[in-house]
Design a protein around this nucleic acid. Structure first.
Lengths: 225, 225
DNA sequence: CTTGATCCTCACGCCACGTGAGGTTGTAAG
DNA sequence: CTTACAACCTCACGTGGCGTGAGGATCAAG
């Protein structure tokens, strides 16, 4: 069997086979008089093992180690990989949920804003806090949460328009929006001091966008009156 | 603000910022007399947008396009990404389920064998067929499926031992194993002709391992008697 | 003036190959 | 025998998203 056929039967490319050989994953096959490589069925078996291990997410280096060492570690490797997989799925599932809620928003401008908020959340909330937020969402019920989180982008967009138009902070409509904003934040943090602290840290670290300054001014006027 | 501070405040590295500039993602900042770059708050805002878009899985090239073009496409991009994410999650979830079942097996040797079988399945079954198999598993009930799939590796291992020891194919124990093998395959394919055809293709393409030859002989003896 | 942090540019390294370039060999048809 | 043409060989650069130095200039404090 020459390299082309091995490639076909293994489903890999010729280049990949050469590369595996170069890495020492596949032992160097004997050569025919012409210099062409010649493989036997055993090579195919090896390739299947390699592909199996690759299929569960191992790098080529890891595959190499795994094939050299005794099988006792194999179970461990699989468990390790399972762990990584589960974590990834959890993370991706969360992301999907957020993006779905995001798409409920009618205003395209709000999308980018919400995305920014989201990536800020990832930066400042620890996994435990995210867990807490997720639990709170469950408590509130799916439908309610969905509505609340759909409201956020709208609220941000409205506030942004007032900010752009420099609507005075004592305007009743703006004040109403400001109070709703506070309510949503309260629902969000739910009286968890760690989360409140994170929000504070967020405000300190992040640059003062016009919007955030405006919102703070609205709140200050509300509290002082 | 010089590059180090921008790096800190954005959470990126200095190298990354230089790289973004090189790609044209970040417009070239003005330089101080010394040649050092000088940034303002606006740069930070841009970086937040970039990070947001990256967080939902866009490549730097895609981010660049997205920031240039109007927001109307943004929704589309998010939807596209959602689609990819959901597919990935489905795939990974399936993988996790299989690996979990795999770990139920007591025999470490069977693990690799089962991994091979799994990657063969991925190669030869179309998504629709996999779907069908998943549905059948649901029909059979979770517990039953779990037991059946835990049985596979054991069965393979036992058969492998007989194959290695060249136990004659008319041995009653081997025959029992062979019939059980057939039953499991039948449960697996469940009378779906497309799946049976895939199995056939699998046998034709794959090299004849000693084990598969042995199993076929066992079956042939059974059918002829 | 020295020290140490920060900045600059240039350029190679990573992973898992893809994709040629430029040349040799195998195989079938004319 | 020639002529195609497929398959093979080696060599070596390209991908993405930076990391990680090398070697040197600049800044801020003591």
């Amino acid at each position: 069997m020459r390299v082309g056929e091995l490639a076909k039967r293994s489903g890999l490319t010729v280049r990949a086979l050469h590369y595996y050989e170069e890495l020492g994953l596949l032992q160097t096959p004997r050569r025919m008089a012409s210099g062409h490589r010649e493989y036997d069925e055993h090579a195919l078996g090896k390739l299947q093992q390699i592909q199996s291990l690759r299929a569960i997410g191992m790098s080529l280096a890891e595959v190499k180690d795994c094939l050299l060492k005794p099988q006792t570690t194999l179970r461990w490797v699989v468990e390790l990989h399972l762990d990584k997989l589960r974590r990834r799925i959890a993370h991706e599932t969360q992301l999907v949920q957020r993006l779905e809620r995001l798409l409920d928003s009618p205003d395209p401008d709000a999308i980018l804003q919400t995305l920014e908020t989201m990536s800020m959340l990832d930066k400042y909330y620890s996994p435990e806090q995210m867990q807490y937020l997720a639990e709170r969402r469950e408590q509130l019920g799916d439908q309610a949460t969905r509505e609340v989180e759909a409201e956020w982008p709208e609220l941000i967009a409205k506030m942004q328009r007032h900010c752009d138009q420099k609507t005075p902070v004592d305007n009743p409509e703006v004040q109403a929006l400001g109070r709703r904003w506070k309510e949503l934040v309260a629902m969000f943090t739910g009286g968890n001091p760690g989360i409140a602290a994170s929000l504070q840290k967020m405000r300190d670290d992040q640059p003062q966008t016009e919007l955030s300054v405006y919102v703070r001014e609205v709140h200050e006027w509300d509290e002082s009156s």
